[in-house]
Amino acid sequence: MMITVTVNGQAHTRDVEPRMLLVHFLRDELRLTGTHWGCDTSNCGVCVVHLDGTPVKSCSVLAVMADGHEVTTVEGLERDGELDTVQKGFVECHGLQCGFCTPGMMLTARWLLDRDPDPSEAEIREAISGQLCRCTGYENIVRSVRWAAESEAAS
């Protein structure tokens, strides 16, 4: 099937099998390997991207379902050489270790802050509760998101 998906602002047209997952489309077809894959059951969230601005697990979306839609991946967070505040927050607060969950965590955090610029610790935990991190014990992820919220409020 021919599909056209706009990823990080750029349109990509490809002929794909109808069963191809969006995560594989991004990784294997477009070589955007910042989106990861970690489970067979839609539990881990390392594959999270934005589909028309909403976080989705790209392992649970077929590439053909994204035809005509806009996808943002971790590679699209940085704009004109300027890191997103969330990216800065993760560095500042040591919100990542192996980095495997990080793209998905940051994309969910970006979505959360766009809706709620001042989320509480509990709200942040709730927002990322569909995603796993095996390294950080979540503490510093929560702090990273708070840091981003505060720094966006201050600017």
Partner: peptide, 22 residues
């Protein structure tokens, strides 16, 4: 001290095994 490795990971620019493509 901030980690040196973060620069690539926060940009989705790490290279994990499944990212290797020959």
């Amino acid at each position: 001290m901030h980690r040196k490795e973060d620069a690539r990971f926060i940009r989705g620019r790490g290279t994990y095994t499944d990212d290797v493509n020959l």
